[in-house]
Design a binder for these strands. Structure first.
Lengths: 408, 408
DNA sequence: ATCTGATTTCTCGACTGTCGAGAAAAAAGC
DNA sequence: GCTTTTTTCTCGACAGTCGAGAAATCAGAT
């Protein structure tokens, strides 16, 4: 059921529009905001006055006046309005970034991922978080949001990692990362979901609007997938289905997750290693494979080693079959491949195409566009910012108490 | 990018809310509408006065007054405001239904599906449509929408059948169904999509809101799947992925669609027949299998015939594997099974569960709820009404010119 | 027959919001 | 110093929602 609408909601939505325009295009003048949002000039005056009074945006220092006419007044986010902490968890380390409200990176450091169980893990993140704010002497209260990303399966709604490559079925609850005295919220998202979101936003910036739906496939020790699409209302919807552990072959090779025949058990780094060395497919997979090992196998494959070639081929077919199923169930869309595995795209490509080509969806609508976007960490960070600031802006607008004009 | 908002849009959305409440619950009094929508009584007065002046709703004839106090004035849709024509295409016949704006069925007849190509097919529908309005002597102009359903793959946006069991890759364009002099629009939807939509609406009527996402699986000569979910804004999103022709087994049995290894090539009626009679899997499948044939095989299976049992078992495994992939890619959700194939659910069940159980998603989140809903035609019709009237109401509200109070 | 209480509908004024037009501001050019 | 140009700001008109209370109308008590 739809929610009722009211004039106050109109103001909220239009304020959100103004903040989104500022987010997307940086400093803007009154008239530019009007153009970007389609709102009347008078409305922009009202909204910007409101937001300025609430100390959310501010007039920039005058820039060199270009041309004649009354000089423009540029609005931008007030940097000190609040802060965002980004936590990117990868297999071996955890990266912490501090970002101000205008989206500029203020501080960044990484820590190795310690040993120990989930409790110790959460505690170490909690401690690092204290260090982030201490280093920049930022008040706890001005941290608006903590955005965490990891590989694995995320609970819909709660910031809980339901399944992860490292902790398996042992759930990791990030609500406890923030102790007392932190008014901020924590959000947790799958890494490849953020990649898909970042790619969709990049598409939106292209002229003509770019693709309206896309999939991001991350190749590495594990296999990640994110789907991003713009719905009829123009809102981005992003999700991270459990692609890596979707069934590839019934009763197939043993996967890290304990099930059999997952895509990852054919296309993950450990799977390529297992196949190249002709280890039986029901061997318990290696916990971690250094990327150098995979590079070595790839080099052998390129020199003509049949088993190494076969391993990459099989990985490609698993991915291709999986992608064909993705297209069958989610509609035709371009696929962007990222992650460390893209180094060996030349060895995977033929298998992927073979795996795709047999199926009806590809016969009907053709091979999907496959592009390689190597720099995954940038995409992840970009996705963090997109998602986090859209939530922060929304929260600010919703929470802002009604502020009357000064004279009242 | 979000669209700008304005006070006029607020009225539109709230008008839509009033019409939706009337749609869902039938005749309502002023106060009941207020309760259902959450809008203030004064607002209801304004909106109903507007809609009444536009001759979209009307005050019902007084019903027996119950209790003391000022008698209620019940509002309902004005029946003669416009009409909907529903066309349900099935493998052997086409059913035409005429429905008034209040949702009551006025006329219904079926015609056998003729021979001939797509042009003849479209022409015969066009002729039947003329007959629908002639029989009830309805003006062409008062037909607001024609809603068509069929099995097969529908073009997103245009009313074009991209792939169908009967015409294969030859596209069927339903825009031509309405000739000149028909202001109405034509929409085309996959049959099982409508089923999923109807089931979601039934869930919404349960107290507590029922399921927020579900899948409908239709078993018959071909395999259909619809997914319906309520998004964060509470709007239903329904889709019909190409489940029947999703890859089940690479290089597997030959399917009607020309590809190999589709789910349908293992679980469709013709596939069950082919397996039960041990016909080679690359035999070109029968165009049409009478349901009696399948019933016969089912009877044999129930009497202990191994090959017949095996055929149903394999069909079940194909469905189960496919459903596991569905859950992997769309999240965990209950599955409602419908269609003529549900008669033999007892023979399929074990295979479905086997096909589901091997995978990570089921190990993590458990077996999805599987329920059988035998009466598919009712669900299809219900889905037609839900979808068609939501479009009609939307159109009416958007197209309605601004109507001033009488005195101006 | 009339009064009273209950219940629903209707109406009025206050408030919030958007928009267009034009006034005001401020710099560049002559 | 005046004009031109461009941008910002302000004002009044208009659309919409809401709460409060008036008006309508019936059932039952007196």
């Amino acid at each position: 059921m739809l929610a009722k609408s009211s004039t106050e909601l109109v103001r909220q939505q239009n304020s959100a529009l103004v903040l989104a325009a500022l987010r997307r295009r940086g400093r803007l003048a009154h008239t530019e905001i009007s153009d970007a949002t389609g709102l009347a000039s008078a409305t922009i005056s009202a909204i910007t006055a409101d937001l300025e009074r609430a100390r959310i945006i501010e007039k920039s220092e005058q820039q060199a006046t270009a041309g004649r006419g009354r000089p423009r007044v540029l609005f931008s986010q007030r940097r000190t309005c609040g802060y965002l902490v980004v936590i990117s968890i990868s297999s071996d380390s955890i990266q912490y970034s501090l970002v101000d409200y205008a989206g500029t990176l203020l501080d960044r450091f990484a820590e190795p991922r310690g040993e120990g169980g989930t409790d110790a893990f959460v505690a170490s993140i909690s401690a690092a978080l204290e260090r982030v704010v201490a280093r920049s002497s930022i008040d706890h209260d001005s941290v608006l949001l903590v955005s965490v990303s990891s590989k694995g399966l995320v609970h819909p709604g709660k910031p809980v990692l339901v399944w992860s490559p490292v902790f398996g079925l042992q759930p990791v609850d990030f609500t406890e990362v923030l102790g007392r005295g932190w008014p901020a919220r924590v959000i947790l998202n799958n890494e490849t979901l953020l990649v898909a979101g970042a790619l969709l936003e990049r598409e939106a910036k292209k002229e003509g609007g770019g693709e309206r739906a896309l999939a991001a496939l991350s190749l590495g020790h594990s296999i990640g997938l994110g789907i991003a699409r713009r719905n009829a209302a123009g809102v981005a919807e992003i999700s991270a289905p459990n692609f890596g552990h979707m069934l590839h072959i019934p009763n197939g090779g043993l996967c890290r997750c304990g099930a059999r025949g997952c895509i990852e058990a054919y296309a993950g780094f450990y799977a390529i290693l297992r196949m190249a060395f002709e280890v039986p497919m029901d061997t318990i997979p290696a916990k971690f494979v250094p990327i150098a090992e995979i590079d070595k196998i790839a080099a052998q494959a390129r020199q003509g080693n049949r088993m190494a070639q076969f391993a990459f081929r099989q990985a490609g077919v698993a991915l291709g079959n999986g992608l064909s199923r993705l297209l069958s169930l989610h509609g035709h869309m371009p696929v962007f491949i990222t992650g460390p595995g893209t180094r060996h795209q030349d060895l995977l490509q033929a298998g992927i195409e073979e795996g795709l080509s047999q199926t009806q969806v590809v016969r009907l609508e053709g091979m999907p566009a496959l592009s390689v976007v190597p720099d995954e960490p940038s995409l992840v960070f970009e996705g963090h910012l997109n998602l986090a600031f859209s939530i922060i802006d929304q929260d600010i607008i919703l929470s802002r108490p009604h502020i009357r004009a000064a004279g009242e």
